[in-house]
Amino acid sequence: MTRQVGGAFASVVEANELPRIVRLEDNLYAAVFTLMKLLPARYIVDRARRSGALAPGATVIETSSGTFGLGLALVCRLRGHPLIVVGDPAIDRNLRTRLEFLGARVELVDAFDAPGGIQGARLARVAELHRAHPGSYVPDQYENPDNPGAYGIVADQLLSTLGPIGRLVGPVGSGGSTGGLAAALRQSGGDTKLTGVDTPGSVIFGHHNGKRLLRGLGSSIHAGNVRHTAYDDVHWVGAAPAFWTTRELYAERAIFAGPTSGASFLAARWHARQEPGSVTVALFPDDGYRYLDTVYNDDWLRAQGVDRIPPPAEPKPVTAPDDLDEHWSHLAWGRRPLTEARRFPS
């Protein structure tokens, strides 16, 4: 798909898929996306159309309760594909409205006790729908290598703007953005360190599965696109510090972002101050409009029992993922496989 026609973008998708690069501190920068998952959604759909895996007018079916679903809805609407999004009851009302306004059909699954938790139940429903719609296409964000493969263009943008990147910090869900960007940056000849930001209650880096108030990162399944041996460090950030830092980003820096951006900023700022001679880049995945009724709403925070206090000045250092603090923990992962998650040296 051509990104520009003359001086204009081919569509609003291409116009919004790349981030703005913003300097936050001396050696700390943010890649600020309006909707980060728009890029892999467009990339996956267009490559499937070119290969014949997605026929003209065929139905697209995917699991998402967040921004990948919205990215797909925008792309499918413009490319002429019906879309079914399988989510769960935690999907926010405003997002569901936007999906349905774009013509997507939204199905909710609430079997939290299913194998693989709620995400396992959602994937099972996607498989059922795929069988019921012959010729349909499943983007499969958790396993499809085109998800991380989409981010090469962002790596080029970062390198041409900032030069060598010492450390990349970003939230981890499907593993596409952090893993794909780090791989592309390292292929340029540097050895960029990679920090993944997760949350307690997520199994990605070896913690137990549990309820998570902080959404948009974390998982109850192990996605194939999360290559654990790519990560140098892992932070687990709880809801309260993520929400506080998200609001701080807007109140003090006028960056109106979602809570995964707050979690990313918290970890990235700490690393940048530990490594003053190196450039650190934080990924900010989406804007704040979805969160006006939640993260930016004091009544909602009180109803959730979220303490509005500043986060700790630094994370709790841990040697295993079963020793997490509810607020903020850090583990020097060391590019190890997940099988070694509970055998780190003390």
Results as ranks from 00 to 15, higher is better:
residue 1 M to F: 15
residue 2 T to L: 15
residue 3 R to C: 14
residue 3 R to A: 15
residue 3 R to M: 15
residue 9 F to Y: 15
residue 11 S to H: 14
residue 13 V to M: 02
residue 15 A to F: 10
residue 17 E to C: 15
residue 20 R to G: 10
residue 22 V to W: 04
residue 26 D to W: 01
residue 27 N to C: 10
residue 32 V to S: 00
residue 36 M to R: 13
residue 38 L to N: 01
residue 39 L to T: 06
residue 44 I to P: 00
residue 47 R to G: 04
residue 49 R to F: 01
residue 54 L to E: 03
residue 55 A to H: 04
residue 57 G to F: 00
residue 62 E to F: 06
residue 71 G to W: 07
residue 75 V to H: 08
residue 82 P to N: 09
residue 86 V to C: 02
residue 89 P to W: 01
residue 91 I to M: 10
residue 96 R to A: 14
residue 96 R to C: 06
residue 101 F to I: 11
residue 102 L to S: 09
residue 111 A to T: 10
residue 115 P to Y: 06
residue 115 P to L: 10
residue 118 I to A: 01
residue 118 I to E: 00
residue 121 A to N: 05
residue 124 A to N: 14
residue 125 R to L: 11
residue 125 R to Y: 06
residue 132 A to C: 06
residue 136 S to L: 11
residue 143 E to R: 14
residue 145 P to I: 07
residue 146 D to Q: 13
residue 148 P to W: 04
residue 148 P to D: 06
residue 152 G to E: 03
residue 155 A to G: 12
residue 156 D to G: 14
residue 157 Q to A: 12
residue 158 L to I: 02
residue 169 V to G: 05
residue 173 G to P: 02
residue 173 G to T: 11
residue 175 G to P: 10
residue 180 G to P: 10
residue 184 A to Y: 09
residue 191 D to V: 14
residue 194 L to H: 02
residue 196 G to H: 08
residue 199 T to A: 10
residue 201 G to R: 00
residue 212 R to I: 00
residue 212 R to N: 07
residue 220 S to Y: 01
residue 223 A to F: 03
residue 234 V to F: 09
residue 240 A to D: 14
residue 246 T to Y: 12
residue 246 T to E: 11
residue 248 E to R: 14
residue 255 I to K: 07
residue 255 I to G: 01
residue 259 P to Q: 08
residue 262 G to A: 09
residue 265 F to E: 00
residue 267 A to K: 04
residue 270 W to K: 04
residue 270 W to P: 03
residue 279 V to T: 15
residue 280 T to Y: 08
residue 285 P to C: 01
residue 298 D to F: 00
residue 302 R to P: 01
residue 308 R to V: 13
residue 311 P to E: 00
residue 313 A to R: 14
residue 317 P to E: 09
residue 318 V to R: 05
residue 323 D to S: 14
residue 326 E to K: 05
residue 329 S to R: 05
residue 334 G to S: 11
residue 336 R to G: 11
residue 340 E to M: 13
residue 341 A to P: 01
residue 343 R to I: 05
